[in-house]
């Protein structure tokens, strides 16, 4: 290269460098870039998205519809021989029973909110999986050698997990409404409250599982941990059945399980059911839990990434 061109080239280079470095001064630099890549991989493969939603939709459509507790206690299905109780009394009795147990006469609606949270738990657990592959394929080293703070890499990953979880929950909510979920309490405010609770749960679980994935030796281990945890966590919560019909030892577990608090908050908001706890307490519990999980997840991830 002739010297003059070279000087001009170098000058242009310096000007460009200044512009680049300015963007790097932004402490949030890189978070969205990383989260966006993850999300692209996800929404570009609609088949995968549909596959992950099939399970919760089957739960809703088959389990939710089959467990039609309302029909057990209606005047059409049940009576005591000899004592001719009028159907309306039985219907009334049935509705009271259901409302006492589930807080609503529609078990399907009760279950729908549980399923929203189920989707959150499932998706958040998967948020760590991509990092296992990123490490295997060497992609993680590529980002680690780019000028992005280590923390932003973890935050970007967690953020994509949260967005993905909430988006899936939104889709399941739409399906639930189509299948007959009670919509009388759904309005912008109640949606905001329910999704805020789910956001906190997604944030905490995504941080936890991203950290586990970073440190786990292979993806099989990670899958095993996930499969081991997800159903017990759901069954030992109020997602499928109300806490008060459970044995007392199980009630203790449910009271610790953060999933219960997200479900409780969601039901109070979306179905107008009187919750097990006041709404503020649900949020307090979820906030404290996510602060702890995010802190632990971040500290351990950062320590791993800078070893």
């Amino acid at each position: 290269m002739p010297d003059k061109i070279k000087t001009n080239y170098n000058k242009a280079l310096e000007a460009e460098r200044a512009a680049e470095y300015e963007a790097l001064n932004n402490p949030l630099h890189g978070i969205w870039t990383i989260a966006n890549r993850e999300l692209k991989k996800w929404y570009r493969v609609p088949l995968l998205l549909i596959m992950t939603l099939i399970q919760p939709i089957i739960w809703l459509g088959l389990f939710g519809k089959a467990a039609n507790f309302g029909s057990l206690f209606s005047g059409a299905s049940f009576n005591i021989p000899g004592v001719n109780i009028p159907a309306s009394v039985l219907n009334n009795l049935g509705n009271t029973l259901l409302t006492n147990t589930f807080g609503t006469t529609s078990y399907f609606s009760f279950l729908s909110v549980g399923m929203l949270v189920f989707v959150i738990v499932f998706a958040a657990m998967f948020s760590g999986m991509s990092i296992v592959w990123d490490r295997r394929l060497g992609y993680l080293n590529k980002i680690l050698s780019a000028p992005i703070p280590r923390g932003s890499i973890v935050v970007g990953k967690v953020l994509s997990g949260v967005v993905r979880s909430l988006a899936q929950a939104a889709i399941v909510l739409i399906v639930a409404v189509v299948l007959g979920m009670d919509t009388s309490y759904i309005n912008p405010v109640s949606l905001l409250v329910a999704f805020a609770a789910m956001f906190l749960l997604a944030l905490s679980l995504s941080s936890l599982f991203t950290m586990l994935a970073l440190r786990s030796k292979d993806w099989q281990t990670q899958m095993t941990i996930m499969n081991l945890l997800n159903l017990p966590l759901i069954f030992a919560s109020n997602a499928l059945f109300p806490t008060k019909i459970m044995p007392s030892w199980m009630q203790t577990i449910v009271a610790i399980n953060p999933i219960s608090y997200a479900v409780d908050a969601g039901r109070q908001a979306l179905l107008g059911i009187a919750g097990a706890n006041p709404l503020w307490f649900d949020f307090l519990y979820l906030t404290v839990f996510s602060i702890i999980m995010v802190a632990v997840g971040m500290i351990l991830s950062l320590r791993y990434l800078s070893k």
Partner: peptide, 13 residues
Amino acid sequence: IFCADLYGIPRNI
């Protein structure tokens, strides 16, 4: 372009 984003390079460059 994703790589450029990692380095904070504005789109116009």
